[in-house]
Design a protein around this nucleic acid. Sequence first.
DNA 1: TGTTAGCACTCTCGACCGTTGAGTGCTAAC
DNA 2: GTTAGCACTCAACGGTCGAGAGTGCTAACA
Lengths: 339, 339
Amino acid sequence: MDDRPIDSRKERILRAIIDDYIQTASPVGSRTISRKYETSLSSATIRNEMSDLEELGYLAQPHVSAGRVPSVKAYRLYVDRLLEPGTVPQDPQAKAYFSQRVHQMEDVITTAAQAISEFTRYTAVVMMPKQLELRVSTLQLVPMPRGSALLVIVTDTGAIRDTVIRVSEGLDGDALYAISRMLTEHLAGRTLQDVQEMLGTYSRQMGGDAQVLQGIADLASQMARQSATDTVTVGGSHNILNYPEYSDVEKARAFLSVLEEKEKLMALLPDGRDAFTVRIGPEMGMEEMDGCSVVTASYQVGADHNGFVGVIGPTRMPYGRVLSALSAVGSALSEMLGE
Amino acid sequence: MDDRPIDSRKERILRAIIDDYIQTASPVGSRTISRKYETSLSSATIRNEMSDLEELGYLAQPHVSAGRVPSVKAYRLYVDRLLEPGTVPQDPQAKAYFSQRVHQMEDVITTAAQAISEFTRYTAVVMMPKQLELRVSTLQLVPMPRGSALLVIVTDTGAIRDTVIRVSEGLDGDALYAISRMLTEHLAGRTLQDVQEMLGTYSRQMGGDAQVLQGIADLASQMARQSATDTVTVGGSHNILNYPEYSDVEKARAFLSVLEEKEKLMALLPDGRDAFTVRIGPEMGMEEMDGCSVVTASYQVGADHNGFVGVIGPTRMPYGRVLSALSAVGSALSEMLGE
DNA sequence: TGTTAGCACTCTCGACCGTTGAGTGCTAAC
DNA sequence: GTTAGCACTCAACGGTCGAGAGTGCTAACA
């Protein structure tokens, strides 16, 4: 592919074509550009430029007498300009829209996904940050009916997980508390990995309540596993059907299937820690998503955990608007979760 | 509408029409029935019967030279036969399919929804039972970093909920345990409603730690609220796009939107406690769902809590097969959750 | 009285056009 | 380098037509 830089007039024209195509979803002709965007140039001139742009790989023609359609390369150029440092403003309306809808902290993530999808009218994804190296802060057994107890592990970051385990019928609340104290004393400050490894050592000292130890080991490994795989929520998946590029049912089906498969979905999301990313169709290397783009903005929680808010929609997407909305919701999330 | 009973031959023909229509999704002609189902009758005879059935409201004609299509009334008759007591067998394949996929107890519900949707190739819904009148069994504060504590409430049914509350910095693990003991002593055996009401009374005795009491009140009310609204999970929503009746994108969009709105979704589910229900299109009184049916099977957890597994798909659905699959998964769920 | 063959009729669907209009590339003039 | 003009291409639209499916009706038959 030809990578010579293009002059500023070509770029202006290219941008105009993309803008128009984003609005209309149909191939853009030279006359449209000459009348709506570059009024000082005739359609013939535009035509020459468009012909050049096509040769350079920025435009494509669905068929000879249709207008031009931007290529992936064109979108790339377009969004790279948008992503130049400091050029993504926050959309205050998006922020307000989101803030109004958050009522319960427990489901901020879900709410964020819904708010983004409603606001942008695209499909939204929100990802909670991975947390590695969690350390146990407290470990406690809470009595439950019928010889069970609830094992609760709290980590230094405040993450909580619990599971029900069986214990000897004889153990009452006080006995369980005593065990909890001892366990906490031994295990506090250790990472979840450590805890799993150490349990062999302690089983002797504990004098037999292997059930409890097994429960702890299981829960610790589960927590470690869960905290290492990010949690991701999707909102407004039906929104894709708003767009003519997905009026083909087969395409829509493929799209929706990807959203329901966690693994594939994760593969769409960026793995770096860029403030913003835009991944355009084929760049993602997943056939079902060829007509799509994924736009994300990262948000910070605490010192070094970061998650993403994102939008998945057709490649023809008002990237500027979407980025601003994501930026706003992302920063709102940072504030809320940062406490 | 005419409600005279129809004779057995008419019914056989009607059933044949429905069966054929379920397979092919296209209007059924008299000749098809005469050749594939009622080989002893000529197409002309079938034609006469079909004409009668149309007059009785069981069949409709999309246009004059098309075949007949079953009406809602016809489906009703058809499924009522299927639902006659003792006529829904369990599908062992469905049970196996589901059982193989369950690994972690925490997400049985999600797994069930996925398994059902994959197995039947329809959209699945699974509902956890409502639990009213929950009584507190244990109440415990678990120390957390930085002046917080985790408040855990366990109910007699084994339901667990927790929330983070702020406590005076001075309180260590032992102090929190002492408070937990006292709280449990006072509140054990009370319903969640009681707990909320009683908190006023105890605030005096507690000598000031209003934060803790407030936390309990909040959590109790939240638990009460959550346990009163059922949790429902959807799986395989994209499956609807497999069926030609939803190749119209607008219809598909409406369908998917309903699934994403909890309230509308709940309205589709039955509120009784029947072992099986089939609700056909217009019977649900929701325009978007006119071309759909909702089939559910209930499953029991404990003495008197029951939830549902269900399938949402086009009215033209192999009800027998779907019911058997649901029945199997439902009973598997009962076993798993019954412990 | 119920069943059936035969036939005319209706209506959808797909194929096959000509027409229209948008848009292009090329040429020649400015 | 820009632009007007023109011939050319091609998708989209609309109309026509024949084929095929299916019906209702009639008349004959058991």
